[in-house]
């Protein structure tokens, strides 16, 4: 019955704050108690980088907000403090005693987010909305569902944007093989199990070591927790023979290096050679949202420009395999329906 949904962006200015505002309004209209936090910092009037005005986060009365004490506004009344630290101070849980604005400064890590979500749930928030930051995704492993905001600020070319969205969606469709969450590279086969001291596949040299161990035990299964670098993954793949299961930890870990197209292509190549691919854990990718506007630097200052919203939307829809919407042009229905569906399912 209780749920946490993250709203992340593939880049800045892809409109995640707008999506968050829409979801807040819909939840309020549906009478669903909401908790709100962020994995970064949001809610200022102007963007840190571009100096452009940003949409404000309006919170209805009764909303629970987890934000740094230093970011609290008068309409928020503190109920409890936490030990979760941010770069602007310790996170507190507060309730909007009247409608107002929120400046969100929340837990930057998955561990901190897990704790904050649990506390918001305990306070009665049925739906916790988690604001993403700067294209960062990895802490969202603490959420149950994810909405990804993308658009012209990420890529102006519709085909490229669509290919990338498709690649991201592919990762979320990987089969889930629940495992023990062991945090090291590991191979197992008829010859036994070998664990390497590395928490991720970040170095081609580590890939070589792993391949050697795989050969030594006649590996049937390789566990690859954490993120993978494209180079190391290619290096590993080139030294392996099937049939073999490659088990990754989480789709968001695969996305962390910020190269979804490259990672998806590398995985497709491995699948093409008969390897079975899966993840130990995952979360539901609920929808993509599209923002056709993007900032450009003109003279000394940034200005907004508008891309072709229709073309962007059509292209991403064709590639994504999940609902896609421009919440400004089309309203909140598509995205909100996905959140409701997940709420019903939980």
């Amino acid at each position: 019955m209780k749920l946490a949904v993250g709203v992340a962006g593939t880049a800045k200015n892809t409109g995640k704050t707008t999506v968050l505002r829409v979801l807040l309004a819909e939840a309020a209209a549906a009478g669903i108690p909401v908790g709100l936090t962020s994995i970064g910092y949001d809610g200022e009037d102007l963007d840190h980088v571009t100096g452009l005005p940003k949409p404000r986060i309006a919170v209805p009365r009764g909303t629970w907000v987890a934000t740094a004490q230093t970011a609290l506004r008068p309409e928020l009344e503190v109920a409890e403090s936490t030990a979760v630290e941010t770069a602007v101070g310790r996170v507190a849980l507060a309730r909007a005693v009247r409608p107002g604005r929120a400046v969100l400064a929340g837990p930057a890590t998955a561990g901190g987010l897990t704790e904050v979500i649990a506390r918001l749930h305990r306070r009665g928030a049925r739906l916790v909305l988690v604001d993403g930051a700067f294209g960062r995704l990895a802490p969202m492993t603490a959420a149950d569902g994810l909405i990804i905001a993308t658009g012209a600020a990420r890529h102006r070319e519709p085909k490229l944007l669509a290919r990338e969205a498709g690649a991201i969606a592919t990762l979320f469709r990987l089969p889930r093989w629940p495992g023990d969450g062991h945090p090291r590279l590991r191979v197992s086969g008829p010859g036994g199990e070998r664990v390497l001291p590395y928490p991720a596949l970040l170095d081609p040299a580590w890939a070589d070591e792993l391949a050697a161990e795989a050969a030594a035990v006649g590996a049937r299964e390789i566990h690859l927790p954490g993120s993978v670098s494209r180079e190391a993954l290619g290096r590993l793949g080139s030294q392996l023979d099937g049939p073999l299961k490659l088990v990754f930890s989480h789709p968001l870990h695969l996305l962390a290096p910020g190269e979804p197209l490259a990672v998806a292509e590398a995985l497709a190549a491995l699948a093409g050679r008969g390897f079975e691919l899966g993840v130990e854990r995952g979360l539901s990718l609920l929808a993509f949202t599209i923002n056709p506007r993007y900032p450009v630097r003109a003279g000394g200052a940034y200005q907004w420009r508008a891309g072709d919203g229709g073309r962007l939307l059509a292209a991403v829809r064709q590639a994504a395999g999940v609902p896609v919407s421009d919440v400004v042009a089309e309203g909140p229905a598509v995205v909100w329906a996905e959140v409701q569906r997940l709420l019903g399912r939980q």
Binding site: A298, G300, A301, Q303
Partner: peptide
């Protein structure tokens, strides 16, 4: 002040 496109 009527000075457009300002930068800080």
């Amino acid at each position: 002040l009527g000075l457009p496109g300002a930068d800080v």
